[in-house]
Design a protein around this nucleic acid. Structure first.
Lengths: 128, 128
DNA sequence: ATAACTGTATTATATTATTAATACGGTTAT
DNA sequence: ATAACCGTATTAATAATATAATACAGTTAT
């Protein structure tokens, strides 16, 4: 069963996008595997304190991307072969890193200073 | 005069937030200085192809943050002493880096691999 | 002074994100 | 079979974002 324990609604982006991202990150991390059970729309909406329709929107888009499979009346499960895992991982890693690098460059931060800052921030956190 | 030549409406975030970010990044980079002229609401709205009200919203929030000063009828100018520049720079650098580091950790990317990827993405770009 | 530009304000409308309240029919464990 | 879940669908309402069309008064260069 996919866990949403560490899920935090932080940035101001739409909730359904945050949910999609959370699941994709779990798949990229390997903590979410193939044919893993997905929380029901109602259960997750109660857990996160949002409307069931918001969850349905996220799940529906994940299904269109071929990441989860739903059957009316039954539980929903992930459907991720190795190819899709690699695609998601590449997408997220490259995309996030590009965003950060672009921001640093736009602020005139030199490469070495940026990498030093990243290493420093990395240590500050307790996990990882 | 603040330049918006390299401004691109990329991410799906609200335009007024992107404008605020663009100006803050310029201040952090030092390419936007003290008492520098800000494009008029109408001029910038025409340049970006958005509504003047959207620009006004961004400028109004920047004024509330003490970053620009406006007088009815006259042009608007930046108002950034060294203290505010340092505050903005620290905010943006630390914030953006934290977001990236958190994403990498959530995806189970080891520190060294993340830093290697960052260095690699850094080189790929033409500027910086 | 006056024309051209400024910031500011108002009202209306459209779109998107989200909530809310239901409803229907399929699946599953007992 | 039946109760408790499940996915799915519909309709209505609200808030945030953005557009559109104006209007008014202050500033500035000529």
């Amino acid at each position: 069963m996919i866990s949403f324990e560490d899920f935090v609604m932080g940035d101001g982006s739409p909730i359904y996008l945050q949910i999609i991202r959370h699941i994709k990150q779990g798949i990229a991390a390997g903590t979410i595997g193939h044919q893993e059970e997905v929380p029901s729309r109602r259960a997750l909406s109660a857990l996160l304190g949002v409307n069931p329709n918001t969850i349905q929107k996220a799940y529906h888009m994940l299904e269109e991307e071929g990441i989860i499979v739903s059957r009316s009346g039954a539980k929903s499960y992930t459907d991720v072969d190795e190819e899709i895992v690699e695609r998601i991982r590449r997408e997220l890693l490259a995309g996030d890193t590009q965003v950060w690098v672009d921001a640093m460059k736009r602020m005139g931060v030199p490469r070495e200073e940026a990498l030093r800052l990243a290493a420093q921030v990395w240590e500050k956190g307790q996990d990882g």
